[in-house]
């Protein structure tokens, strides 16, 4: 027994010391998900074609895409983000207001933000007919905003 106990403890220690939490694998700050619906039939998704999306003063994050769903990062340094949505050379802007809540995730991921009290303001209606907030809290990446067109 005495002869075996040391190797056994050494093995336990080796296994225990191999565990890693140095790599961030948990989800971090979620993005705002906008889905496009058909104004004539508000329960059906409808794609926009030739869509360009950029935040005020930034480069495009969507370039000439055709989609019924976009995920937009919200500015983590401000309580609002202004986005330009341009489709078939028709521009619309939308201001997204929110409050930021920092949430501790883990040693390697640090803190993430959840965005609460979501609301939309200063919406232009060139191709966007109407908007609706379906989820006021951005804590995971499911639909938060409906755009009817």
């Amino acid at each position: 027994m005495k002869k075996h106990i040391l190797p056994i403890i050494a093995i336990i220690l080796l296994i225990a010391s191999c565990e890693k939490d140095d790599i961030c694998i948990e989800p971090v700050t979620p993005q705002l998900v906008i889905r496009f619906y058909d104004n004539a039939n508000p329960t059906e998704y409808k794609s926009r074609t030739s869509l360009y999306v950029w935040a005020e003063g930034k480069d495009s994050i969507y370039n000439d895409v055709s989609t019924d769903s976009i995920a937009l990062p919200l500015n983590p340094a401000e309580d609002f983000t202004i986005y330009h949505l341009s489709s078939n050379d028709i521009d619309d802007t939308i201001t997204i207001n929110y409050t930021r809540e920092e949430i501790f995730v883990s040693r390697s991921c640090g803190y993430k933000y959840n965005f609460n009290d979501l609301n939309l303001a200063d919406i232009t209606n060139n191709w966007i007919i109407s908007t609706e907030i379906t989820n006021q809290t951005v804590e995971n990446e499911t639909e938060h905003v409906k755009i009817l067109h």
Binding site: Q31, A77, C109, Y111
Partner: peptide, 16 residues
């Protein structure tokens, strides 16, 4: 201090 962790580099990282 901490830097809020978000995917991508579209917005600049900032430290609080």
């Amino acid at each position: 201090s901490y830097s809020p962790n978000f995917d991508g580099t579209y917005f600049d990282e900032h430290t609080i």
